[in-house]
Nucleic acid binder design. Structure first.
Lengths: 224, 224
DNA sequence: GGTTTTAGCTACGGAACCGTATCCAACAGC
DNA sequence: GCTGTTGGATACGGTTCCGTAGCTAAAACC
């Protein structure tokens, strides 16, 4: 067993949990509207990433955003509300299937889009992970997450590409099942969990060549 | 309050995160040793599942286990310590590759083993999910999780089966890459996240037929 | 039986959050 | 410049959790 984390009642800051310095800005000035909200969203990501969805507090978010608790309660009722709104605002735009005649390239690009969306904003991926985990034990939250965040944007990064080329006759439409359409996302996700970092382009290409293309009946070695 | 519209027999928990009733037992009696520890582990799963790793508290675990906070501090220093120990104790035993001459069946069984391990103990999957999510933002915890929980048991449910049949010449050894060895676990995991439930046997079979077998160059329709 | 461990109970001061109220000041629009 | 709006600061009582202490009593040992 480990040593005691602290001795006595010392208010010492536990290692690793230190908060970022509040958004510094010239004293006697104020943000409002969109600029303020952006700062609060970023703070909500930080707070959720470091303390989990259930550990996040209004006071913590306010501190990180360099604003007052009262300013948060003016708009939201809970950390959860803020985080979900922040996730929604940050969720990547859907890029309509690039019509190039390059199945393999389009699949890789679809996975790149997914990966880059995780890296687009600091702490975005960690915050999303925290919410996903929490939602697994909370049907209400799960429903909200998929309705307010995922659904409105379309989802399915690789599925569009696969269907596009199925329509063109490049591959068999019957093979684009739900299972197959999920392979790419599932693999990227698992990689992130194991490695604690975003996959590089080479790894994405491996996913496409070794998992997705074989699943739709195409040997990548026969491709141009 | 809502009407009671209880159809089935499941002891449905009304939303609101009510805690389970403390382990009832005859008054004036005490558990000790292993029996007590088992109850505390179960309580730690509940607490972590419902409130997240960062939201779990010693008081909450003590309440659920029907024991005293002081009894927890006697052995552990934090909820995290308890949960990690509980996960370690509950992690499924590795089943050596069943030597039957049935690749497809062995793969399905490997995934069943993985799935059943998640359902083996109440709240086990949710607790593990919570810890995984938290660990993604905390290198120390990630290291601990993999060292104290995953590594000691071996991991890789499908990889063993694939390697076994590669050695027998049933499939090409070159195709059993890290990516391919991860497909099964990744797909089960993604399914759980999306559906909030464990996959049934039919879905596991789909994963094997539509994703894993094609990836190792085998058309399931050609199998016995 | 008597003795040693180990659980359970109560209580404590300190800390962090909660959600709200109050008041003042910076901002935007005119 | 004047004015209504929106942020920021402070304070509050109430709750939960922290980690420790002191004590009693059940369980296990011999």
């Amino acid at each position: 067993m480990d040593e005691k984390r602290r001795a006595g009642g010392a208010p010492e800051v536990p290692e690793g949990a230190r908060e970022e310095a509040p958004e510094a800005r010239p004293k006697g000035t104020r943000r409002r509207g969109a600029a303020l909200i952006r700062a609060i969203h970023a703070a909500a990501f930080e707070e959720t990433a470091e303390r989990g969805l259930e550990g996040a507090t209004m006071e913590g978010i306010a501190r990180r955003a360099g604003t007052a608790k009262t300013s948060l309660y003016r708009r939201w009722n809970s950390p959860e509300d803020i985080v979900l709104e922040a996730l929604h605002a940050a969720y990547p735009m859907e890029e309509p299937a690039p019509a190039a005649d390059d199945l393999r390239g389009d699949l890789v690009r679809a996975l790149q889009l997914m990966r880059d969306s995780f890296g687009s904003r600091p702490k975005y991926a960690q915050a999303l992970m925290a919410v996903l985990a929490a939602s697994w034990a909370r049907p209400d939250l799960h429903e909200r997450l998929y309705r307010e965040v995922f659904d409105p944007r379309g989802e399915r990064f690789t599925k569009n590409a696969l269907l596009h080329y199925a329509d063109k006759g490049v591959l068999d439409r019957e093979r684009v099942t739900d299972v197959v359409a999920d392979i790419g996302e599932a693999m990227v996700f698992k990689y992130m969990l194991d490695a604690m970092e975003l996959p590089d382009d080479a790894y994405l290409a491996e996913i496409v060549d070794q998992a997705i293309l074989p699943a739709v009946g195409i040997d990548p070695r026969t491709l141009p």
